[in-house]
Write a protein that binds this DNA or RNA. Structure first.
Lengths: 231, 231
DNA sequence: TTGCGTTTTTGATATCGGTCAAGGTCTGGG
DNA sequence: CCCAGACCTTGACCGATATCAAAAACGCAA
C-alpha cells in the first residue's frame, strides 16, 4: 500500500470532488504519524511541518502568555485540518489530548497540491469559514457568559461533537460521553480556573442535571436544564 | 462606467491573479452601497444578500444573547470581506461604526463567480485563515487577560490597524488616531463594562501613557509602557 | 494490597470588575 | 445662546470568581 492509506479513506469528506488519480496523488504526499496523549505536534513558530489532517483522536490548539496563562483557542476532531498553509506560520501550539493519528503534509507539498486542485481549496475554504464561525461564537462565551453558562454551553457542545465520532450509529447528540479534557483543560477552554470548573460540575451534579460516574465520564440527565443554563 | 467601479480598483489586492476580463466580470456582479454610521448591513439569519467587500469605513460583527449582552466578534476594515459564501448563513450581525461604502454581491452570483475563478478562492482562503488567526489571539485576550491588559492590547491593535488605512504615507503604527468605537463598543469588543473601560482609560491618562484630547482621539505617549501592560 | 504522585474537590479569603447611582460633558437643533 | 439627549466619568458598594491552602479521590506500579 502507499503511505497514509487510511488518510485517503478518511479524507473523502474533504476531498470529494477529487478524482481517483488525484486522491492517489494526495495520498503520496502525506505521511501518517501517531501522537500519544500529551505530546505536542507542532511547536509555536516551527514552520517545518505544518499542515495535518486528523484521522483519529482529539488535539488542542493553544496560545499562552509568558507568565504561563493558557487559552485553548481550538479543538481538532477527526477529519479536521490543522495548520496554516500558504506561507504563514501558525500562532498556536498543537498538543494531543488523546492518543491520535494524523496525516501530516510538508507545507510546500501541500501548498503545491492545493493550488493545482481547486476543489480541495474550495473544501478547505468552506471548512475554514465554518471554523471561524465556531470560533466567533466561542468569543461570545469567553467575553460575555458567566461560569455556569460557560459550563452548560461546553457540555452541550461536547455532547454534539462527540456524537459524530463515536460511530455507534445513533443519530443526534450523545447523552453519555467521555470527556477528552482534564479539569484544567476545561478551564483553559472556558477562561476559568480549575476550582471554578470543579465547583460548577459539582453543582450540576447536586442539582440532578448531570451524572459524573468518573472524572472523565459525563451523562446528561436533564438536557433541557442545560439548554436553559447555556442561554 | 460599469457599476461598482471603485470596487474594482480597491479589489486589486484581493483579486490579483485575475486578468482584466475577469475583473470586469466581477465588477458586473457587485453593487456599491453606502451605509451610514450605526446602520446595519446584514441582519442575523438574513441570507438574501450575503457577501460584501469593504471599500471605505469600519464595520463591526456582533453576536448577542437574548437578554441583550453583546460581544463584538470581528471588525471589518477597508478591503476586508464580510459574509458567509457557499450556502451557510452567518451567525453575526453587521453594523457600520463609521459611514461606510461597501461592494455587495448576491450570494448566488458570488458563489458562482468564485467557483469559476480559483485564484479568487485562493485569496479568500488566505484571508479567512488570517482572520481566524486574529480571532484566536483575541480569544486569549477575552479568556485570560485582565482589564488593563485588554485595554493596552486594544490600543496597540488600533494603532496598527489604523496606520494602514490613513494613507498618510507614514509607515508603521500610528502614534495618534481617531477611534471608530464608542466606549460601549470598546467594552463589547473586550468583554468589559463601559465603566471599567472608562476607568482604565482615565488611569492610562493619569499615568502619562496616553493623551485623550477628545472622546474619540487617542495619542500614544509611552508605547513601551503599553507594550509592557499588554503582556 | 500498599504507597506515592497527580488530579480533583472543598473551604476560607481576597480582589477585580460589575452594578447601581449621580453628576459632568459633549453635540446638535431650535 | 440655550436646551435636550446621548455619552462619558466618577464614586460607593457588592458579588462572582480568583487565589491560597488543605484534604480527598484516583490511578498506577511495585
Amino acid at each position: 500500500m502507499t503511505p497514509c492509506d487510511t488518510c485517503v479513506v478518511r479524507n473523502r469528506a474533504i476531498c470529494s470532488g477529487l478524482d481517483d488519480a488525484e486522491l492517489v496523488a494526495l495520498n503520496n504526499i502525506g505521511r501518517r504519524r501517531n501522537v500519544t496523549a500529551g505530546e505536542p505536534l507542532i511547536w509555536e513558530d516551527d514552520d517545518s511541518l505544518l499542515v495535518a489532517n486528523v484521522i483519529e483522536g482529539v488535539l488542542k490548539l493553544t496560545t499562552s502568555t509568558e507568565d504561563g496563562r493558557e487559552q485553548i483557542v481550538g479543538v481538532a476532531y477527526p477529519s479536521d485540518f490543522i495548520g496554516r498553509p500558504f506561507g504563514q506560520t501558525s500562532s498556536a501550539s498543537v498538543v494531543a489530548l488523546t492518543d491520535a493519528r494524523v496525516c501530516v503534509f510538508s507545507r510546500n507539498d501541500f501548498d503545491r497540491f492545493a493550488r493545482e486542485h481547486p476543489e480541495l481549496e474550495h473544501k478547505l475554504l468552506e471548512r475554514t469559514l465554518a471554523e471561524l464561525d465556531r470560533t466567533r461564537s466561542w468569543m461570545m462565551l469567553l467575553g460575555r457568559k458567566n461560569a455556569s453558562e460557560k459550563i452548560a454551553t461546553f457540555l452541550l457542545e461536547m455532547s454534539d461533537r462527540l456524537a459524530d465520532s463515536s460511530c455507534t450509529g445513533a443519530i443526534g447528540p450523545a447523552k453519555r460521553f467521555s470527556l477528552p479534557f482534564s479539569r484544567q483543560q476545561v478551564a483553559d477552554l472556558l477562561g476559568l480556573t480549575i476550582e471554578t470548573v470543579s465547583r460548577q460540575f459539582t453543582k450540576l451534579k447536586n442539582d440532578g442535571v448531570v451524572e459524573l460516574p468518573s472524572r472523565r465520564e459525563v451523562e446528561i440527565v436533564n438536557r433541557g436544564a442545560l439548554l436553559a443554563l447555556a442561554g
